[in-house]
Design a protein around this nucleic acid. Structure first.
Lengths: 229, 229
DNA sequence: CAGTGGTCTAGACCACTCA
DNA sequence: GAGTGGTCTAGACCACTGA
């Protein structure tokens, strides 16, 4: 909660005086919390790339992240990025299938497990941005429909199903567009394609979702902030 | 130090019994440290993607990361990844230049600042993997030569110059190969190129290094582990 | 050398898992 | 309900910055 509140104050430029946050000691007073708690909150903001700390000097606000970039450093979807542009999502397909051998391996579940299969198309300011193939394990996500799929599935999972998202693996590579992909992205066949494959786990380690996203290479710019650990 | 030691034990499969680590209480005894210290160590391993914690259950070892992938989740170079393949580096150019207007903006320094400019080529099992353009601010990295550049510049910076690497921003996009790039990567002109631009800061927030890496799209697979924060 | 962040301890209590 | 991770506190001392 303290991290959220400090983040809000940073975004609303409450601390804009000289791009420096109050000292840890001051924040302890402001939030009536112990040193460890304040430092934990600052650490969360550090991991989110909002601030950095310099020993003996202070806590500094990091330059705002680039706009119109897709932040791949978080587990959630892209809904919150792309501040400047309007993202529209079109559901092309939502089917309940059974895991074949390939899917069962990739989703770490037995063959025949019921799986929701989604195909979506995203537009950024009405230009085709991506094609997304997403699979959810129905034994973990028991119900999905068009309405939920068209809003944010992740907030449905966290807020309604009360499941906690844990961590994810992402693989990024580049290929050439197939005819179907090229048609949907309005690009020539054989043009480059940026492909991101993700495997997402709940906080308890259960694999519940995999996805493959094919991006329009002219529109999609990925962004990532890391810390040296 | 405790995180390093636990990581070593994980990698040497000391804990292989059932892919579960000792409990926090046990680790407190093993390392004669307080709860907070042990939890901090485990948190570091969490961030590195080695383990995940499940409340009420235990600390689990995460499936080993994919081999032959370039981990873009850390700030350092790629030297430590690509376990299976031999990475060879060839220095094509090392020149001391002065920052022009463009460089001065990108490196957040005055025009005319002395900058080391490097051009390198990397090979994975003798196949061209990437072309790298790297710039170091000479006022922060006072000396570079061919010998240092051919080894690990980062260990030179940390171990010899005693500077602390802090954090970085990465931008990833896809384009088409120019004639020069295509020649160096042994690919046809116009084929896809995977481009990663990075800006690296010291722990005190000083920008000391930017780089642009053009990858052979057939060889380079990027990998990233994230946690939900 | 005062100010500020970095680390560690000991202890307490809460929340969740799983047999 | 015992075991295990999650959070928080109060206090201490160290390491670094910057005037």
């Amino acid at each position: 909660m303290i991290a959220e509140e400090i983040e809000r104050r940073i975004r609303q430029k409450v601390y804009e005086v000289n791009t420096k946050l109050p000292t840890v000691d001051q924040l302890m007073i402001d939030f009536e919390a112990s040193r460890n708690t304040i430092r934990k909150a600052i650490e969360i903001l550090s991991l989110r790339g909002l601030v950095y700390q310099v020993q003996g000097s202070g806590i500094y606000i990091r330059k705002a992240e680039q706009e119109d970039c897709i932040n791949i450093g978080n587990v959630k979807g892209i809904s919150k990025d792309f501040l400047q542009k309007t993202i529209r999502s079109k559901l092309l397909d939502l089917t309940l299938i059974k895991a074949d051998e390939d899917l069962s391996k990739r989703m770490n579940c037995p063959i025949g497990t019921p799986i929701y299969r989604l195909k979506r198309q995203r537009f950024s300011d009405e230009k085709p941005l991506s094609i997304e193939y997403t699979y959810y394990n129905k034994e973990i996500i028991p119900y999905l429909n068009q309405e939920i799929a068209e809003k944010s599935i992740y907030s449905y999972i966290e807020d309604d199903l009360k499941l906690s998202i844990g961590f994810s693996d992402k693989f990024i590579h580049v290929s050439k567009l197939t005819a179907d992909e090229a048609f949907l992205l309005d690009l020539p066949v054989g043009d480059p394609s940026l492909i991101v494959k993700e495997t997402v786990y709940l906080a308890n380690g259960l694999l519940f979702n995999i996805s493959t996203v094919i991006y329009n290479y002219l529109e999609a710019h990925l962004f990532l902030q890391s810390e040296h650990y």
